[in-house]
């Protein structure tokens, strides 16, 4: 179980002579991931979803807020004592081409963390190779073929599997998959998504999926939760299928409306939402952060700050004063 409460992070961008500019990447994000669960963060680039993933993988620190891993509060620990906990959360990079060292074979890549593990647990040397083969088998690769190869001899899909196998060497509790399929060939994406789903079931690994493509979030498990993030704030949260079929926050609706419709197979949803302008981080923040771009904003939206919560009979949590279900998602052509 991994939880976060009120996580904030501000990056100070170095500007010229006149000093820097603050970019608030995260403005108090709460989340929780159960063991073996699946949580997806979606939003535009620059919304803070990647920062959140990096904080969880221990690659970035946060400014305030509390992260607990298996009930242990990270803020109460010294930085050195935190490391073993964060090691149980492994990051799967977006780019499988830079995530593997081009000068090292798959065997070398896997053996290094396994050797460390063997030393820590007092296992024999033979276990390293055994485990490397086992892990490759687990991610759907043929060890005999893959082990002696260099990364450039593998396809993008195979590399991403090797990256996942490497993450599994430390028996992680959670995998943070940051746009893990966006650089993989289309015909192979489902394979990687299916693998993540499979690992959840077989190993009880939680998957934290970070993406700008909502559709892929469905494929790591239909029991997953979706967090829609806008400018460092969660604006809608709930089960994946609920939010996709009946989103209530205009920003979620805008995101879903933007997904291309496979004309011929699908018909567009009836009430697409198009936001005005583009994501801008440096605007001052009064009221709802999305208000300036929102087609449904009222006076209240620019004055008051909406808080994430449930209202009326809407099943998911949202942060909107005027939640309304709209049919924005494409429908299968047959059913129209």
């Amino acid at each position: 179980m991994i939880t976060g409460q009120g996580i904030t992070k501000t990056f100070r961008q170095r500007g010229g002579v006149l000093g820097g500019r603050d970019v608030r990447a995260l403005r108090g994000v709460d989340f929780s991931i159960a063991r073996g669960g699946a949580v997806s963060f979606i939003g535009e680039s620059g919304c803070g979803k990647t920062t959140l993933g990096r904080i969880l993988a221990g690659l970035e620190s946060h400014d305030s807020g509390e992260i607990t891993i298996d009930g242990v509060s990270m803020t109460s620990l010294r930085p050195r004592a935190r490391r073993p906990y964060f090691r149980r959360i492994q990051l799967i990079h977006q780019d499988p081409y830079s995530a593997l060292n081009p000068t090292r074979t798959v065997h070398q890549t896997l053996a290094a963390p396994l050797a460390l593990r063997a030393r820590q647990t007092g296992r024999a040397k033979g276990w390293i190779d055994e485990r490397a083969e086992e892990l490759l088998g687990l991610v759907g690769l043929d060890p005999g073929h893959v082990l002696p190869r260099y990364p450039h001899q593998l396809s993008g899909g195979m590399r991403q599997r090797v990256v996942i196998a490497r993450a599994l060497t430390v028996d992680p509790e959670a995998l943070v998959a940051d746009e893990a399929v966006s650089m993989i060939d289309v015909s192979l994406r489902l394979g990687i998504l299916g693998l993540l789903r499979d690992l959840r079931e077989r190993l009880g690994v939680s998957v934290l999926f970070i993406t700008h493509d909502v559709a892929t979030a469905r494929y790591i498990g239909d029991d997953g939760e979706l967090y829609v993030i806008y400018r460092g704030q969660v604006v809608e949260r709930g089960p994946v299928e609920t939010i996709i079929s009946a989103p209530v926050h205009p920003y979620t609706q805008a995101l879903l409306s933007a997904i291309p419709v496979l004309h011929g197979l699908e018909v567009p949803g009836g009430q697409p939402v198009t936001p005005a302008g583009a994501l801008e981080e440096d605007e001052h923040d009064a009221g709802c952060l999305f208000a300036r771009r929102c087609p449904f904003a009222t006076g209240r939206c620019s004055a008051e700050v909406p808080v994430l919560g449930r209202t009326g009979d809407i099943p998911q949590e949202h942060a909107c004063f005027h939640p309304e279900r709209r049919s924005v998602v494409a429908m299968p052509a047959g059913r129209a």
Partner: peptide, 25 residues
């Protein structure tokens, strides 16, 4: 680069990261 970050994330010692990952590159 991703592979250096990954090595740190896996808790590999600095000597390994510098000697085996950075130096050969």
């Amino acid at each position: 680069r991703g592979f250096i970050e990954a090595a740190r994330g896996l808790g590999l010692p600095t000597t390994h990261i510098v000697g085996r990952e950075l130096l050969p590159s």
